[in-house]
Design a protein around this nucleic acid. Structure first.
Lengths: 239, 239
DNA sequence: GACCTTATGACAACACCGTTGACCTGTTAA
DNA sequence: TTAACAGGTCAACGGTGTTGTCATAAGGTC
């Protein structure tokens, strides 16, 4: 049944569904994104999406081979949206920080899509654009090529992987998510000092810190280390 | 139905299943891990697990409230296996580096389970042990409590999220994985210098670097930044 | 405007999934 | 010996993704 999907360009006859909706790849992706945003990540199922569109679930298989296909289409749309409004200022550290936070926020806004797409290399236009821009920022800052690539790689993977990590947490059913934050309060904060001295001493900090994403802190650490490298390099340019 | 699960310590009557298997929390977790590694993450379902154990699926609900509980138990087992052979040397930076690399390697050794469990807080014994140990290393190094927690959080999340990221890549079907590494060679390395100067200038480095995990580099960056913080703190102890 | 082709939506079915309430039975303690 | 009950089993519910088949409206052609 893999010949069921017709490439979007070749699509010509658009018959409205029983409920009068004219389907299209774009409409499906948009509706899916809206569904995720409004009713949580697990609201996205072929059947629910069909219902939301006013179409039979099986109709969607005329546009996407399977749900994974749909997820990738959604992810692609997300990359575009993240990059579309970003503009470099010339301050490499501020630029990288801004971009990192945007990528992370983009992932959190659409957790399911982020989780599925974070580890894929698409080789598509937006991704290429991002690589070029990022490398430009780093080389412009004065990092030698090998170092720029090394830091680019770490930076991107950090943004993607933290994005996915936090997105996965956000995509958890509400009950499970609340249970997790409760664990720090109910379990860790109550461990006695004689058996777990370090946890007991920092319990207050743990409860406060662990409910937040560690990405901003990790990002700042990475940028600090990069800046340190840069000053070392400038000190001995031929090293 | 929440009183269905009996705490492991209170469990005493162990009746064998129809097929003669004596169930236990450990046996279930072990079997689940085996199932995941052998047949992929999707192979883990209550019904399949029941079949693999030689027990009715509903029996598992005597041991775990729901599938999520089971996932947490699996995650904790993985943490335990990682930690079991680790011994601190007293050099905080070397210790953290070693531990980070171990966690990463552990994730790669059980890619599917890692992907499923990396973002969960289990509140179980092994996890607690890990938290206590890590905080001990950082506080012992001289980080004040708030700073120790901040760095602990970033360190752990980075190890887990990069672990999951690389594990997800490793869990990809072989064809897809090869296609991805090919993209760097076939697409990026061939971009002309006039439209993509930064990629063209670093293409050689990109092809070499992007096929490797960026975790070791990211880890070293994080540790460098932490060390920098430590010298700053020592410079002005009351800051 | 009628006709033919065919793209595309609808339907029904399949094989799964997690979870639960009711039941039954072997083990254990008294 | 017996009574309690932990723990395994059964059957069912409402969900899921996916597919084989069918019907029909759109589009091109005359």
């Amino acid at each position: 049944m893999s010949d069921r999907v017709v490439p979007p360009t070749a699509r010509q006859r658009r018959r409205p569904t029983k409920q009068g909706v004219v389907l299209s790849e774009e409409l499906i992706v948009e509706t899916a994104l809206r569904l995720i945003e409004e009713h949580g990540a697990d609201a996205l199922s072929v059947r629910r999406l069909g219902r939301a569109l006013g179409a039979d679930p099986s109709s969607l298989y005329r546009y996407f081979r399977h749900t994974d296909d749909l997820m990738l289409a959604i992810a692609d749309e997300l990359i575009g949206r993240t990059l579309r409004t970003w503009r470099p200022t010339g301050d490499w550290r501020a630029d990288l920080r801004d971009l990192g936070l945007r990528m992370h926020a983009g992932a959190l806004a659409h957790p399911r899509a982020a989780v599925l797409s974070s580890f894929r290399v698409t080789g598509r236009v937006y991704e290429i654009q991002a690589v070029e821009t990022l490398l430009g920022v780093l080389r412009g800052a004065g990092f030698p090529d090998a170092e720029a690539v090394r830091i680019y790689h770490a930076f991107v993977d950090q943004a993607l992987s933290f994005g996915a990590l936090d997105a996965a947490g956000a995509a958890l059913p509400r009950a499970a998510r609340e249970a997790e934050t409760g664990v720090w309060r109910a379990t860790y904060a109550r461990l006695p000092a004689d058996t777990h001295p370090n946890i007991a001493a920092t319990a207050h900090h743990l409860v406060a810190d662990m409910r937040r994403s560690s990405y901003p802190a990790a990002l700042d650490l990475l940028l600090s280390a990069a800046e340190l490298r840069l000053t070392e390099i400038r000190g001995r340019p031929e090293a």
